[in-house]
């Protein structure tokens, strides 16, 4: 019984314990579930300190010594002010002084909100530019599959594809943005088409979601059968 096998076995028991809920809710599942939550919370506390706060907050506040133990980087005392500001968030559990918690939360939301205009321009302007596709053809009818387009030429098939791209973009956009009542038949038709075309996006999301979720299950079965049993236990 080596350490690796013990580690794998504990992991396998935990996996089976969590899977037992598929049959029905039971005490074994509840036990593993609570251990899972506890370990995750425990690691978060540790990692918030070791991976983040120690270097970002503490070391900058108290400074760091050199390798020989002499004062190296000086400390900046103002960093201590973040402790009471951060602790104000915990007043969210107080009935009387609940509002104080809105100060640190407001600061973080303000920092997020202040970046949105810049973020929007960096994210969407290139997308808008990439959506401006040419629609007037200047070359043969169809581009053969498996070959690249000739620079400067636009095949009829590409032009049709670009028109479909633009119609999809605009109709889904109209469905998404015009939430008020539409009176013209054209706009009604546009939003209906948008709704249908939006389903293509959702269908693709569904297909890809299935891939992810099934892969996670495959990974667990691989762990149980191959890593733990076949390789870990029977050494095959």
């Amino acid at each position: 019984m080596d350490f690796t096998w013990i580690k794998l076995t504990i992991g396998a028991i935990a996996t089976i314990g969590l899977y037992s809920v598929l049959y029905r809710e039971n005490k074994f599942y509840r036990l593993i579930e609570h251990i899972y939550l506890g370990l995750a919370a425990g690691w978060s506390i540790t990692a918030l300190w070791t991976e983040s706060l120690k270097s970002t907050w503490w070391d900058k506040m108290v400074g760091t010594p050199t390798a020989s133990g002499q004062p190296g980087t000086p400390g900046y005392w103002a960093y201590i002010l973040l402790l009471p500001i951060g602790l104000m968030a915990y007043f969210v559990f107080s009935r009387k002084n609940n509002w104080v918690s809105r100060i640190p939360i407001g600061i973080i939301l303000g920092l997020w909100a202040g970046q949105q205009a810049d973020a929007w321009s960096k994210k969407f302007l290139p997308q808008i530019a990439a959506s401006m596709k040419p629609i007037i053809p200047n070359d043969a009818f169809i581009v053969p599959a498996g070959t690249g387009p000739t620079p400067g030429s636009l095949y009829v098939s590409q032009a049709v594809t670009n028109i479909i791209f633009l119609v999809t973009l605009l109709s889904v956009l109209s469905y998404f943005l015009f939430s008020f009542e539409l009176k013209t038949r054209f706009m009604k038709g546009m939003t209906t088409t948008g709704r249908w075309l939006m389903m293509i996006g959702f269908g693709a999301i569904f297909g890809n979601t299935v891939m992810t979720r099934f892969t996670l299950l495959i990974d667990r079965m691989y762990f149980i059968w191959i890593e733990w049993l076949i390789t870990g236990t029977f050494k095959m």
Binding site: K123, P126, Q127, A129, A130, S131, G201, A204, I205, N208, T209, V210, M211, T212, T215, I218
Partner: peptide
Amino acid sequence: CTGVMGPETVNYYSAGLLFGLVVGLN
């Protein structure tokens, strides 16, 4: 990215915001 994030990220790739993209197990 994972498959779940794939369709959204493909959009960024096709807009030239990424040099390449690897989606999910595929």
